[in-house]
Simulated scan of single mutants.
Amino acid sequence: MDALTGSERGRETLVDLRYAAGLTLDRAAGLLRDFPAGRQLCVSAVKLSALENGRPVTGSPWRDPASTGLLVEPLAKVYGVPMRMVLDAWMRTRPDEPAPALSGARPQAASAAALAAWESLNERQQIYLGEILRDDRMVETEVWMRRVQRLPVPRPAEWRRLPLTLRSAPSLVGYTRLQERLRARGVHDPGAGPTVHALERRGLVKVSEDTVVHPAVGEVGRVLVEVTRRGRAAARAGLSEPRDPDPPAHLLSEWLWGVLARVANAGPDGLGDDELAGRSLFFIGVGYQTKAGGRPSRGFVDSVPVMAPGDTHVAEYRWRLTQLGRQHIQEYADVYRELYPHVSVIGLDSPPTPAP
Rank of each mutant, 00 (worst) to 15 (best):
residue 161 R to K: 13
residue 216 A to M: 10
residue 250 H to K: 04
residue 191 G to H: 07
residue 178 L to T: 06
residue 192 A to N: 13
residue 258 G to I: 09
residue 190 P to H: 15
residue 242 P to R: 05
residue 226 E to S: 09
residue 178 L to P: 04
residue 221 G to W: 08
residue 219 E to C: 12
residue 148 V to K: 06
residue 199 L to N: 01
residue 182 L to A: 07
residue 257 W to F: 15
residue 208 S to C: 08
residue 254 E to T: 04
residue 257 W to I: 14
residue 217 V to A: 11
residue 240 S to D: 13
residue 216 A to F: 09
residue 260 L to E: 02
residue 231 G to V: 11
residue 240 S to L: 08
residue 171 S to A: 14
residue 151 L to Q: 12
residue 183 R to D: 15
residue 266 A to V: 10
residue 265 N to F: 05
residue 184 A to Y: 07
residue 235 A to D: 01
residue 217 V to K: 08
residue 234 A to N: 06
residue 165 T to V: 11
residue 211 T to W: 11
residue 193 G to E: 09
residue 232 R to N: 06
residue 183 R to I: 14
residue 254 E to Q: 10
residue 176 T to Y: 03
residue 259 V to P: 07
residue 254 E to C: 01
residue 207 V to E: 13
residue 195 T to Y: 01
residue 249 A to F: 01
residue 264 A to H: 14
residue 198 A to H: 06
residue 172 L to C: 03
residue 203 G to Y: 11
residue 264 A to I: 04
residue 251 L to G: 00
residue 214 H to Q: 13
residue 161 R to Q: 13
residue 230 R to H: 10
residue 162 L to E: 11
residue 245 P to V: 00
residue 187 V to K: 02
residue 148 V to R: 07
residue 163 P to T: 10
residue 257 W to C: 14
residue 166 L to G: 01
residue 177 R to L: 14
residue 168 S to C: 10
residue 244 D to T: 12
residue 221 G to Q: 11
residue 239 L to T: 03
residue 193 G to Y: 10
residue 235 A to H: 01
residue 179 Q to I: 13
residue 253 S to I: 02
residue 237 A to Y: 01
residue 230 R to K: 08
residue 190 P to L: 14
residue 239 L to C: 08
residue 173 V to R: 00
residue 187 V to S: 09
